[in-house]
Amino acid sequence: MFAVCVRRWNGGRRRSDADCYDNSTIFIPHCPRGTFMKGYNFAYLDEQTKRMIRRALLKAVAIPGHQVPFGSREMPLPYGWGTGGIQVTASVLGRDDTLKVIDQGADDTTNAVSIRQFFARTAGVRTTTHTGEATVIQTRHRIPEETLRENQIIVYQVPQPEPLYRLEPSRVETKRMHALADYGLMHVKLYEDVARLGQISISYDYPVMVNNRYLMSPSPIPAFDNPKMNRMPALQLFGAGREKRIYAIPPWTEVRSLDFDDHPFRPINAHQACGLCGATDSYKDEVITDDLGGRMFVCSDTDHCEQRRAATVQRHGPARPGHRAVSGPSDETGDDGSGAPRHGEAATP
């Protein structure tokens, strides 16, 4: 029954309960697709654990923004590498799902590649880098630029689920504050920012009110991405492995970034277009291109950037980024464009 409810968010495309969620603790792979690791249950976690996590997810969906404790398991990688997100992904993943994993927007960083491989080998699911093809997207610190659809799930890796933890050290007290919707303290933080700096200075992990009830940490995504959470058609799930908390935002839920009437929420972004695809409306990373102080801004979302460049190639034939009206170090690079950085090197803190 729990599985049915969770699957509804995923467009109801899975075959049957028995198919995906049988009681056998060891999944015997017989799937023709991909290379499978023998001896592991489907998607690594045992079925009891996945059920426990799905129960927590159901509760989280029922109370949008509310942190639900769950029995976070030891995973074959340390806390801080996405154990919460991986457990949530493992619990909602079905055989027919297509998984995309991004780390700060990029599909090709170590963490993203490893997690993608992990599920390819333990679940045998199809993987992709294209946002549009994915049914489950696990992310660290970004929301893809492409608008998500109703039958997609986005799973956020969360280091610290408690939005008040820097302001109120007592977890007992923050629980009480959530219970009583007593969020004056969070606004005190915003007040202090405006008083000291003239504006709200939070650039990532910008606190939001979910469904006008719970204060929630959106995980350390840039504030630029906050508006995408509001009334998102996809189901948003959040997993914090070390802190053992799960929370969720059901599709089409109102998510409002905290602000003042006279100091409204303003997402921060670079004022330049992407040095590779020319996009002005995407979130940018600043990358160092050489030892001479050369730098450029490029899309943080690699898939978005590549799709845009591919579309340009289709329309206008092969072209170098340098041909576009963007000044940048890539103008001086050779014809093959090898001087342009790979996205995976675009490291932001």
Binding site: Y183, G184, L185, H187, V188, Y191, D259
Partner: peptide, 14 residues
Amino acid sequence: VGERLMARGARHYG
């Protein structure tokens, strides 16, 4: 001083 105002719902910084 402002915290109690904000806890009560004041949302205008000025």
